[in-house]
Write a protein that binds this DNA or RNA. Sequence first.
DNA 1: TTTTGAGTTGTTCGA
DNA 2: GTCGAACAACTCAAA
Length: 476
Amino acid sequence: MSERGAIVWFRHDLRLDDNLALSAAAALEGPVIPVFIWSPEEEAPWQPGAASRWWLHHSLASLAKQLQQAGSRLILRQGPAGEVLQELIDETGANAVFWNRRYEPAVIARDRDVKQNLRDEGLTADSFNSQLLWEPWTISTKQDRPYQVFTPYWKTCLQAEPPAEPEDQPENLPAPDSWPESDELDDLKLLPDIDWDSGLEETWTPGTAAAAETFDRFVEDLAEDYNTARDRPDHQGTSRLSPHLHFGEISVRRIWHTLNDRIDDRRTRFASGAETFLKELGWRDFAHHVLYHFPQTANEPLREKYADFPWRQDETSLRAWQQGQTGYPIVDAGMRELWHTGWMHNRVRMIVASFLTKDLLISWQEGARWFWDTLVDADLANNTLGWQWAGGCGADAAPYFRIFNPTSQAEKHDPEQEYVQHWIPELTAGKTGVRIGKFPKSVRSGSSSPSEYPPPIVDHQEARQRALAALQQIAD
DNA sequence: TTTTGAGTTGTTCGA
DNA sequence: GTCGAACAACTCAAA
């Protein structure tokens, strides 16, 4: 029987390199039909936010172009994924569907149904790992339980079977006799209605080419100073790979092997920086491990007693935080960087998260929702782990009474105040710096946006005492 | 089952 | 200025 065709269902794996689903389809030597299905309602309540959709639009354009250069195409469709796949099978006569796994609770449930229905029809339906170094169920404690602490988790990973060598892009992607119809990219309406994305355009180039360049630059220029430079928001010391990794524009297995191959002497600064970076990729795996085994944590605190934590409802302070108007320059600089570029330096993410949850006593869920909508790298596993860690209610959050001091953090990590002056022009006499765009009505607070920099909305020392008192309330 | 050691990213206080 | 301890005890992971 000749192969009738294989559908490759692209999701968070928008690349041709080391894409196991694509390789499996190509290996059948029949027609290969690449498809992306836009079905955000199936991921509710965590359907992609505005910044994610902007990135996705451009990443899909890049993927379509690459497929075209390889003699293939990208078919775009909208609607419930199972139904759309069925339509494509009917239209093309394909008898196999391949995809790479995702790990969000709603997506897992949807994919399980899709796979079962396809197999019930006697079709081939297989999924692969092209996103993580170690999938969540391959790592467990000696008591066969999931890990909740990173250090022993990572130790176990490093002693486990290492990630497979990456696979090269398939040489041939045979086209079907006739292509099924495709929506236009603009039909998906992924770009924002209002003119808000100019800062994103200035800052980012989605797609595999830029992902590869960014990683090359990290290897050549940044890795050897990574241990110290990564904590400096006023310098470009981090990899800036997070959105590329989220959408699978670069293979985490290829990163792993490229860096390990370059570590020939473990005592060099390069080796030390590279190992620290690989450990950060370990945190990415760990976040997926925790979300997979504790799927309720996207919405509920991992530590159950935090369900009773006395979070404050304070719309005014929340808006001030979102708009970068708290009166604490390092916090406001970070929040403005986020609004303008869709990204924030990791160190500053910790500072603004500590400020929201400890100084303002506003729940980590509020912070998670804002980040989800505004980050180009918004990732449910990473966002959930990070916010629960900051809120003190998540995995590995000890000591739970840790409260960042925004002033001393700024002195330590932005000593020349380059970062805050860049993002808060009204702090400097000449007022040079980035002027960020307006916020939509839904986000603006009652008063009109002040042109002068505001005084602090809370006194940190008082806020610290208030937070410690609140923490004590749930201690018993 | 019980015990023991240890935990990404901090801050403050007092010697 | 520098250093170690306290924060205030908890929970996890391994033995």
